[in-house]
């Protein structure tokens, strides 16, 4: 995940952040912005499977890598924008909160404030998680080299 820090975040980027964030962090963030505005479901959280496709080396022919469990949700704020979430796994509450925050972020009157109070902490947490994972991985790296080639 690459998120440019200077330009304002696009909807695609914040949807990505909300989907990857820990549900508990999202829950805590939503408690801060309480009371939550009323909303109705367009599609209640539901779990299904998606086929994940990939390309060998990122450039080869696409192939089906495997199926992943996914939960999706769409909702609409009363008289306002609608939000959608697709998250990996089977946590309906996560999908609901992610869709709700997605809808709230599209509301011009509170988008900027939420961006600072909800999204920014999630981004920095995801960054530090990624960094510590990269460090742990780097520590186990093994360098292979050849002393002499038997020719």
């Amino acid at each position: 995940m690459t998120i440019a820090s200077n330009t304002p975040m696009t909807r695609k980027e914040w949807i990505q952040v909300l989907a990857r964030a820990d549900c508990r962090d999202l829950e805590a963030a939503c408690r801060q912005i309480a009371p939550l505005p009323p909303y109705r479901f367009i599609r209640r959280p539901e779990t299904g499977m998606v086929m994940v496709r990939a390309r060998a080396g990122g450039v080869g022919r696409p192939f089906n890598m495997g199926e992943a469990t996914l939960t999706r949700c769409s909702l609409q704020l009363d008289g306002g924008p609608s939000g959608t979430a697709y998250i990996l796994g089977r946590n309906p509450r996560h999908a609901e909160l992610a869709a709700l925050v997605d809808a709230l972020l599209q509301d011009p009157s509170r988008g900027a404030e939420l961006m600072a109070s909800v999204i920014a902490p999630l981004v920095s947490k995801l960054r530090s998680q990624r960094q510590s994972q990269a460090q742990k991985t780097a520590a186990t790296k093994v360098e292979f080299f050849t002393m002499a080639r038997g020719e």
């Binding site: 479901f41 209640r44 539901e46 299904g48 996914l70 999706r72 609608s82 959608t84």
Partner: peptide, 16 residues
């Protein structure tokens, strides 16, 4: 799953 925009779409069944 087919991804379709949810903008201005009415809900489906209450209990699918």
């Amino acid at each position: 799953m087919i991804v379709t925009a949810a903008e201005n779409v009415l809900p489906g069944f209450n209990e699918p």
